[in-house]
């Protein structure tokens, strides 16, 4: 017990003045931030340290899960019956659609096999729930409740039912961080569905607006055009919808047009994410 209050600082002796200690810490932390931001050298280290946080996340999730269970328990019998009927109807409809899709998929796979012998059939989808406690300041990174133990790996594409949402960047034993396409660090190779013109979609820290880069002034782009993944880079499955063009500005004299797009995935209220590998696992 004695001395507990004084041995808290293993790096510096007590004689070192506070201003010097502050300077050293600030320099160290700025270096850490630059390394982490620019080179992502520490991502692996982060996963290791994250192992400490994994149980903490599970603990923090408890109140949310309890609330969810209580809500389920309180749902009235009647609405359950109505819901069951609705689901049965949906089930039939979806089964029929699935048959149609399977037929289409067979055709498509045959065509792709002819065109691109390297294309890998899309693997099994892993579905994860977005953990509600996520508190990234701009909501551009989310925590999901599937991790290494469930087969999640760094680099997997995260898709919601509408379009591409992001990719897995850090994997913990039972959780993983997903960087959304709205993150300023995220770049996604895309193409215009109508014309096939290629571009890169970059996040701006906002859930409702992204930027399409490297589109020449002369490129044929219109408001309302659909952008889809091009599959270049191998991270994302090709031809998956990404965003719709909302704003095109061409400034004479500049090399590229300013193109703003709206993501199809509902990035600010994601609930479930499907994780899948792109055509070439890295």
């Amino acid at each position: 017990m004695a001395g507990r209050g004084t041995d808290h600082n293993p790096l510096f002796m007590d004689q070192v003045p506070g201003s010097l200690r502050l300077t050293v810490w600030v320099l160290l932390l700025v270096a850490l931030m630059v390394l982490d931001h620019r080179h992502h050298w520490l991502l692996q280290g982060r996963a290791l340290t994250g192992r400490v946080l994994d149980p903490v996340f599970s603990l923090l999730e408890l109140p949310d899960q309890a609330g969810r269970q209580l809500a389920t328990w309180l749902v009235e019998q009647q609405s359950l019956v109505a819901r069951k009927q609705q689901l049965e109807r949906d089930n039939v409809r979806l089964r029929v659609q699935l048959r149609q899709w399977q037929a289409l998929l067979n055709d498509q796979q045959q065509i792709q096999a002819l065109l691109q012998p390297m294309v890998r059939a899309s693997g099994q989808l892993q579905v994860a729930r977005v953990v509600a406690l996520n508190s990234h300041p701009f909501g551009t990174r989310v925590l999901i409740n599937r991790g290494k133990a469930e087969g999640v790996e760094t680099g997997m594409a995260a898709l919601d039912s509408q379009g591409v949402a992001g990719q897995v960047i850090t994997v913990l034993p039972h959780h993983a961080w997903v960087m959304l396409i709205s993150d300023p660090d995220h770049a996604l190779p895309v193409q215009l569905r109508r014309t096939g013109v290629r571009s890169i979609v970059v996040g701006r820290g906002r859930a409702d607006e992204l930027e399409a880069m490297n589109l020449p002034l002369s490129a044929d782009i219109q408001v309302g055009d659909m952008l889809e993944t091009s599959g270049i880079g191998g991270r994302f499955p090709p031809h998956y919808p990404v965003a719709v063009v909302t704003h095109v500005q061409r400034v004479p004299g500049e090399r590229f047009a300013h193109v703003r797009v709206r993501p199809l995935a509902e990035l600010d209220r994601l609930q479930f994410l499907a994780l899948s590998w792109g055509p070439e696992p890295s």
Binding site: W25, L29, L32, M33, H136
Partner: peptide, 17 residues
């Protein structure tokens, strides 16, 4: 920083200052 998924060192820097 780790828990909120932001760049490492950000909150630490603010707290130290």
């Amino acid at each position: 920083d780790l828990g909120r998924g932001v760049v490492l060192g950000q909150h630490a820097l603010l707290l130290v200052v």
